[in-house]
Design a protein around this nucleic acid. Structure first.
Lengths: 119, 119
DNA sequence: TCACTATATTCTCATATAGTAATAAATCAA
DNA sequence: TTGATTTATTACTATATGAGAATATAGTGA
């Protein structure tokens, strides 16, 4: 069983690390996070995402391809349009965790500033 | 309380998205994940991480700088050495979640293959 | 069939990043 | 001080990636 120190993490092959890294990489672009955020609200077509995000159609389409390949976004054809939706609820958990991470760091930095407010 | 549709996500500024993306980006490299994985086992010096990861010293040092800047790894000087450690337990949660995400996709793909084992 | 529309793809360019080698900086021992 | 050791930094190269323009593809309707 586990002894006192941190439970030993399971071994991880290079291939597994590469796959995990690829998924984090899919979440490492602001525009892709913006698209995911918009999709958490409701399903949208590619065109709607382009307009709502303020980015070009080609660019949005390419970023959506990355998210689709990462298993985070799904699509279905509806007439001419491509309707996009969040395919994996884990995406929201990941982003929430990261937001929490960020918030913690910001508040700790704010505290540090409060101790020395000469800037 | 919550109504039926997905709870509306809070608004997110471009600046916030950029910061979140930067943190995911820090986790988007296989070598950095390898370093984190080694550090989950126990604290290690830069040199130990270089040897254990099989990468060069300069490269490991640069990747550690990224992880430190992302608030994921902390360091302290101990004589000549720099001892590195996981600074934020959230890192493990994030990686566990992503592993889970990956595992789900793999098993679903495996099932898909099992339905048509002609390859 | 012929436009028209929505999306995907390709091409090109600029920028970012990983890796390595060389070097600088800091610490310890003799 | 001199020399050895550990880490950080810099310079360089190769590759990856984001953005936009142009084009291709496919569905829709006249």
């Amino acid at each position: 069983m586990e002894s006192l120190p941190p439970p030993a993490p399971p071994p991880l092959s290079d291939a597994a690390l590469e796959m995990i890294a690829a998924r984090f990489r899919a979440l490492s672009e602001p525009l892709r996070l913006r698209l995911l955020h918009l999709l958490m609200e409701r399903e949208r077509t590619v065109g709607q995402l382009a307009e709502a995000s303020g980015s070009g159609q080609a660019n949005v389409s390419k970023h959506l391809a990355v998210l689709r390949q990462g298993g985070m976004v799904g699509t279905r054809k509806q007439g001419l349009s491509t309707v996009c939706f969040i395919a994996d609820p884990l995406v929201k958990q990941l982003c929430d965790l990261m937001c929490h991470h960020l918030r913690e760091e910001m508040t700790s930095k704010a505290k540090a500033l409060a101790f020395d407010p000469r800037i």
